[in-house]
Design a protein around this nucleic acid. Structure first.
Length: 564
RNA sequence: CGGGGUGUAGCGCAGCCCGGUUAGCGCGCUUCGUUCGGGACGAAGAGGUCGUAGGUUCGAAUCCUAUCACCCCGACCA
């Protein structure tokens, strides 16, 4: 492709709205442009990458027996009402104004719709159906460029089996295929066990990439590969040990002490001798949550422990419930449900609020002084704590979800009546799995992981072009002729070549654009080196450069390409 | 949805607080010339209803009100 005739609007300056590296580089390299919040156009060079990723996905999906569909994004609302997901999705679902249609945010319903009309016999299964298609979700806050958009490209796959064993097999095939896909895309990722959330079903795994632009927080162990969303992650941190002797409980005047830190410095004690109290409201009832020291409540864990949604109590409610203001609340004398983090199990000699503003108790013995108390894991683990499996240090960081695989079970087949007849002529619901990959996220994550100060560093697998050919002075006849020859030779040999044939762009300009665009191999043709019948080759990833005779370009390119 | 911020030329920004000729700067763009291996130089140009709508005022990019859009933090999130 000749750059002079192409639409590759590179930017020298960083667009003010972009914050995340991949977003900045995709804009600067002329691969995407924003149309509205969370809505992007892919420009020719960017779209080439999308196509390459899609092709890898297709190959690996086909390899596990997947069959590619192309389903409509425009869906009749009534199909979505069969599964109750119009309500479940709520505001996330886009509704069409002048028809009873919705824009599909995922395609379980449509795939199940087809399955129930066709898959009538156990003989017809298993099946794996997939598609690569645009999804629509009315995200309340799109961000990070293409990473969280209102419209995005997703590979979604669905498996149909007659037994749980069959589902396990289909699920396993996807797990393997996903690893191959992400490996081939040269992404470093890890796999996290996750709760299946609103998708329903029994098991699921998320494929995550470590990134500051991520929206999930995960704990990961380098040593054994343990990885878990912070909402479920545990560590083998020690509980507070019970002192052999319990002190007498005593009330202490603590004027203006509002936090654990203040309490510790006021009483000159370590925070591990304190129990922090937080009051939550669950469907109108208050629950006192006790944490060791200054640890924060992990609300996801709390909700699981209590089996329902919670919210923190408002300051006015605190006074009403406990008789004291925030900072002086504690378990002793508290009326209502009390739960505590496991680290506090049966602890004694604790300091905590006295439920009287400006007073705390010391010498609290949870076994002796608090009658009914239940213990749960309620804390968020922190970097540096020991892995629950192998005791090495865990690392906690944010990550981007690239893919997610679910064992759905019969949630959709049951609600939509997708049944088959088994060997005994008995009707059963089809057992389903659902598997997704964010295609544009793969691209963004690749860039997050492969760039330097000058721009993107494409590996040949995803590179929009294998070779970036530059003619440094396109007014000189010998440069033009050599470039044309190289361009034709390499193109004929099957290489995808981007040819910077711009006449008026100066050398520095072309170098900067080439590094920004980041093709794996650059061929630089300048009249100086051409006097010795030589051109320069630069490897983008290493910065390594060398001169070679014009006649040996094809062989050299071939050996470089094969070496990578 | 809560908090914060920003809308001035294709891009990046100044001007606004304290209202007053013809709204500026850098990059980019057009033409000519010189340059030509790491985002050149000179000259001459084109490009703006200052997000939109009201209001205050003799006079509004600037003050007031409303509204829209975009970004960040949070909440939410198959």
């Amino acid at each position: 492709m000749r750059l002079s005739k192409s639409f590759v609007p590179t930017l020298k300056e960083v667009p003010s709205d972009a914050v995340v590296t991949s977003h900045i580089l995709m804009l600067r390299a002329g691969m995407i442009r924003i149309v509205a919040a969370g809505i992007y156009s892919f420009l020719p060079v960017g779209y080439k990458v999308i196509r390459k990723i899609s092709e890898i996905i297709r190959e690996e999906m086909d390899a596990i027996g997947g069959q590619e569909f192309h389903l409509p994004a425009l869906n009749p609302k009534e199909i979505w009402e069969e599964t109750g997901r119009v309500e479940a999705f709520g505001d996330i679902l886009f509704h069409i104004k002048n028809r009873e249609y919705v824009l599909a945010p995922t395609h379980e319903e449509i795939m199940t719709f087809h399955a129930r009309n066709v898959l009538k016999s156990y003989k017809e299964m298993p099946q794996i159906w997939y598609q690569i298609q645009t999804k629509f979700r009315n995200e309340s806050r799109p961000r990070s460029g293409v990473i969280r958009g209102r419209q995005f490209l997703m590979k979604d796959a669905y498996s149909f089996d007659i037994s749980m064993e069959g589902l396990d097999k289909s699920y396993g095939l996807h797990d393997k295929a996903y690893r191959k896909i992400f490996d081939r895309c040269h992404l470093s990722y890890f796999v996290v066990g996750a709760s299946s959330g609103a998708m329903g079903g029994s098991g699921s795994e998320e494929f995550m990439v470590k990134s500051d632009a991520g929206e999930d927080t995960v704990a990961h162990c380098d040593n054994c590969g343990y990885a878990a969303n912070l909402e479920v992650a545990t560590s083998n941190i020690k509980s507070k040990e019970r002192d052999s002797r319990s002190e007498e409980i005593k009330k202490i005047h603590t004027p203006n002490v509002r936090s654990i830190d203040e309490l510790c410095s006021f009483l000159k004690i370590d925070e591990t001798r304190c129990a922090k109290s937080r009051v939550y409201i669950q469907s109108g009832k208050s629950v006192l949550v006790l944490m060791l020291g200054n640890e924060e409540v992990n609300e996801a864990k709390l909700e699981r422990a209590l089996g329902g949604a919670v919210r923190p109590a408002h300051p006015e409610e605190l006074v009403e419930i406990t008789g004291a203001e925030a900072g002086s609340i504690g378990p002793v004398g508290y009326k209502g449900k009390i739960i505590a983090d496991l680290r506090l199990k049966d602890a004694n000699n604790l300091f905590s609020g006295a439920n009287e503003t400006d007073y705390h108790f010391g010498g609290i013995d949870l076994k002796r002084d608090v009658k009914e108390i239940e213990y749960f894991d309620l804390r968020s683990i922190k970097s540096g704590e020991a892995c629950p499996r192998c005791s090495h240090n865990l690392e906690v960081f944010t990550a981007i979800e690239l893919g997610h695989i679910f064992k759905l079970g019969t949630k959709y087949s049951t609600s939509m009546g997708a049944n088959f007849l088994d060997e005994n002529g008995k009707e059963n619901p089809i057992i389903m799995g659902s598997y997704g990959i964010g295609v544009d996220r793969v691209m963004a994550c690749y860039i997050e992981q492969h760039h330097d100060d000058n721009g993107i560093i494409w590996d040949k697998v995803l590179a929009p072009f294998q070779i970036h050919l530059m003619g440094l002075n396109m007014k000189k006849q010998e440069v033009i002729e050599t470039c044309d020859m190289i361009y034709n030779d390499l193109t004929t040999a099957g290489y995808d070549v981007l040819f910077d044939d711009r006449i008026d762009a100066q050398a520095g300009f072309k170098f900067k654009d080439a590094d920004l665009l980041g093709m794996p191999i650059q061929i630089i043709v300048g009249d100086k080196k051409l006097k010795d019948e030589k051109v320069e080759i630069k490897i983008r990833s290493t910065g390594e450069r060398f001169d070679i005779p014009v006649g040996e370009i094809k062989e050299k390119i071939q050996s470089i390409s094969e070496g990578k």
